[in-house]
Each structure stands twice: as C-alpha cells, then as structure tokens.
C-alpha cells in the first residue's frame, strides 16, 4: 500500500529560501506530522484491501487473504448471465441521464447567464436552496408520483429523475461558466450573420469546455453512485444497476460469491475513479468559480 515510510530528514532547502537550521522542536513537529499523515493514509486505504485482493483471488472469502492470483472473477463477471446486464444498465442510466442533464443545463445556464428577467435571482437562489433537501425526505412522494404517471420500475423514469436531480448543480455551474465568456465574442458572431443559436453553438460551446466537463463528471458520478433512487424506483431484477446488484448479491448471506462480488465492486468503482483523476483540476476551479458568481 502507498504508505511510504516517512522520510524524517529535512527537505533540501533551496538556496534562495535558506532558513535558520532546524531546531529539535521542528524535528519533533515534522516527525509527528509524517506519522499523522501516514496513519491517516493507512486508515483511508486499508478498507480497500479486501476488495482489491479478493477481486484477483481464485479462492476469495469474506476476509483479507493473500490472493491466489487469477482473473477468473472478472471473466466470470463479464460472462455470467446476470452481471453484465448490471453494468449495461448502469451505463445506460448514467450516460443518458448525464446527456439530458447537460443539454438542459447548457440551455438553461445560457438563459440564466445572458438574460436579466423577472424571477432570475429568485430562481438562482431556489436552485441553491434545493441542495439543502436531503434525498430521503422526498423519495416517498416521488415514488408515488412515479407510480401515478406510470414511470416507476422503468429505466426511462429513473433516467429522467436522475437528470432532474443533477440539474440544480449543473445549472449553477454552467451559468457561472457561460457568464465568464465575454458577450462581445457572441456579438461579433451575430454581426457575421450567425443566429443566436448558431453563435451559441460555434462560439460559446467551445469556450465552456472545462465547466462542461466538470458538470458532466459530477453528474455522471452522482448518478452512477446513486443507491437510494434506483432502490426505490426499480423492482425488476433485469433493470437493476450495479449499485443495487451489488447490494442484493451481498445480502444473500448463505451463498455469496465473494470473488465475483469483489470483482464487480472493482468494475463499479473504476469509471468514477478514472473520471475523477481526469478532471480533478478543472473541478475545483470551476466549482469555486461557479459558486462565486450569481
């Protein structure tokens, strides 16, 4: 695990930043600092040991053990009858919901950034306030609404709901990003004979890439990881995404295939982890930028 032995020697100081020599107190503080951060890193990583080891272990059990290295669990995951469908469902739900969410968020964000209309501030404040509402507090009423409009236990119903759940953040983020694009660029495009929509397509869209990427990633990760909404809205096994599939597999106490479960968990955690590494830098910048404006 990545808990490298903490080097206690002082870092080589740059010539420009020559400081007074380290006092014994400094040394103690630094050593203590390394010990603390190393302990924290161990705390954060150790729980993953079982998932990682068992996924590549031919005789995986419920406890951490040195793996008999094999990739059979992954082969099983992709060739079993039920498990590939979990992955497909997760992908369908997350990708479609993210696309819908981005399309609507981009259009709405543009309106919020470029026009001053009655109720605009109230709306911006409202979508900020929505984040206060905990999901479990509205899930019951949402379930009844979905039953009444005939969209419970359907993928399309879940997709629309997930897209809607992510809209407040996306709108807020994209309104801030679009407002940062100088209006003069668009006006120049209008002068050249572009319509408003053409100008959005040709000028604004290419310039909001990082913000759009951050919104897409946030939305995808949230939908991908959601557990409560599919748990409540879906009843058919063949509609389950990975989150529910993993939960059901784990809850069958008597006959858990631990290796397969761990491999499924790895398959499930890779997409958000990879996405996060990709847009990590953009994320903080655009979320802070989006939060300051309004």
């Amino acid at each position: 695990m990545a808990t490298a032995v903490a080097p206690t020697a002082p870092a080589p100081s740059h010539r420009k930043m020559r400081r007074r020599p380290l006092t014994p107190l400094d040394r103690v503080q630094r050593t203590l600092g390394y010990v603390l951060i190393a302990l924290l890193a161990v705390f954060c990583l150790v729980p993953f040991a079982w998932v990682v080891f068992s996924a590549v272990d031919a005789n995986a059990g419920p406890n951490v053990q040195w793996p008999a290295l094999s990739f059979d669990n992954f082969v099983q995951f992709f060739t079993n009858r039920g498990t590939p469908l979990l992955l497909v469902n997760s992908l369908i739900i997350s990708v479609t919901a993210t696309v819908i969410n981005l399309a609507l968020g981009l259009a709405g964000g543009y309106a919020l950034a470029r026009f001053r209309f009655a109720g605009r501030r109230a709306f911006m404040f409202g979508i900020l306030l929505i984040r206060v509402v905990p999901a479990p507090a509205t899930i019951v009423a949402l379930y009844l609404i979905m039953v009444n409009i005939g969209l419970s236990n359907t993928l399309i119903g879940l997709i629309i709901v997930e897209a809607a759940f992510q809209l407040p953040v996306t709108l807020w983020l994209l309104a801030g990003t679009i407002a940062a694009v100088p209006i003069e660029l668009e006006e120049a495009a209008w002068m050249d004979g572009n319509s408003r929509l053409q100008a959005i397509w040709r000028i604004v869209l290419p310039l909001v890439g990082p913000g759009l990427g951050a919104a897409a990633m946030l939305s995808f990760m949230n939908v991908w990881g959601d557990f409560l909404t599919p748990l409540v809205l879906l009843q058919s096994t063949d509609l389950y995404p990975l989150s529910i599939g993993l939960f059901r597999a784990f809850s069958e106490y008597n006959q858990v295939d631990w290796g397969l479960l761990a491999a499924s968990a790895i398959v499930y955690l890779v997409p958000p982890a990879v996405l996060y590494m990709f847009v990590r830098k953009h994320l903080l910048r655009s979320s802070l930028g989006g939060a300051v404006k309004g």
């Binding site: 729980p47 998932v51 419920p62 053990q65 990760m221 990881g225 557990f227 989150s243 968990a265």
Partner: peptide, 28 residues
C-alpha cells in the same frame, strides 16, 4: 490516499467496510 474513500460509490465503501468490521476472527 485520502481522496480514495470519497470517489468510490457508497456501495463499494460499505462493502469494503463489511470486511473490516466482519465478526469473523479473521476480519481486518
């Protein structure tokens, strides 16, 4: 290392801890 627990889905987080907190004497 500190970021890992946040970026995995919550189901994976729970699964990971199920093995840590296992009642088995071999639990982490």
């Amino acid at each position: 290392a500190v970021l890992m627990p946040m970026i995995v889905p919550e189901v994976v987080a729970s699964l990971a801890w199920a093995s840590v907190l296992s009642n088995n004497s071999e639990g982490t």
